[in-house]
């Protein structure tokens, strides 16, 4: 990915980091009057792009060939090392771990607990709608055959959603229920792509099972 250039120092909000013509703004920074300022209390990281950025994706529009900003080192201010707590807002494409709080025939309501590698302090609410549970045979999906309240689910954020919810999807093999508890109160283990089994009672229950890594 990126190599740290070793210049680490502490920045406070509002601290001047450098001119915007020399650096690219990373997380925790902002630009004002063509200067780069810190917007967080944290450690400054400068990183060089590891490889010359080729046209990684197909050009969809003609751009004026300016000095490509990607050649500039990116300055970012990170909270790691400053505080254990760093709240992040789930973004589209993030993989999250969440707990199912309630289910309806149309959707499962979940509380997002972990976003990427970050353990969240706040509880953001998410929705897995019935059409986002599986990639195939969507019309046959039943929420109660996929999730139960209390299950831990690995899912992907597909939309920032409405005022209260993030929209999540489990429509990939590695996404779905990763921890489930049986009706008898025992932890279960996955048997196949749609079943978990209680080791004590031997009964199996239906879930949208995540393929183990």
């Amino acid at each position: 990915m990126a190599t740290s250039s070793g210049t680490t120092s502490i920045a406070t909000p509002g601290q001047l980091l450098g001119p915007a013509s020399k650096f690219q703004p990373g997380p925790g920074t902002h630009i004002h009057n063509s200067n780069l300022y810190s917007s967080l209390l944290g450690v400054v990281h400068a990183s060089q792009p590891a490889k010359p950025p080729g046209p990684s994706k197909r050009l969809t529009k003609i751009t004026v060939p300016t000095q490509t900003p990607a050649e500039l080192p990116t300055l970012s201010v990170s909270r790691t090392g400053v505080s254990e707590k760093r709240e992040v807002l789930p973004e589209v494409g993030n993989t999250v771990l969440c707990r199912v709080t309630r289910i309806t025939p149309r959707q499962a309501v979940v509380a997002i607990l972990i976003c990427g590698d970050t353990v969240l302090e706040a509880e953001w609410q998410g929705l897995i709608r019935v059409q986002d549970v599986r990639a195939t045979e969507k019309d046959k999906v039943k929420i109660y055959e996929s999730f139960r309240p209390g299950d831990i689910v690995r899912a992907e954020v597909i939309s920032l959603g409405d005022q209260a919810n993030f929209y999540l999807s489990t429509a990939r093999n590695e996404l779905g229920v990763i921890l489930a508890t049986s009706e008898a109160g025992n932890n279960m283990y996955p048997v196949n792509w749609k079943e978990y089994m209680d080791p004590e009672t031997g009964l199996s229950e239906l879930r949208k099972v995540a393929k183990p890594y």
Partner: peptide
């Protein structure tokens, strides 16, 4: 606010 890690333009 700085301790909480909320983005600010300045202190």
């Amino acid at each position: 606010l700085a301790d909480a890690g909320i983005d600010c333009i300045d202190t």
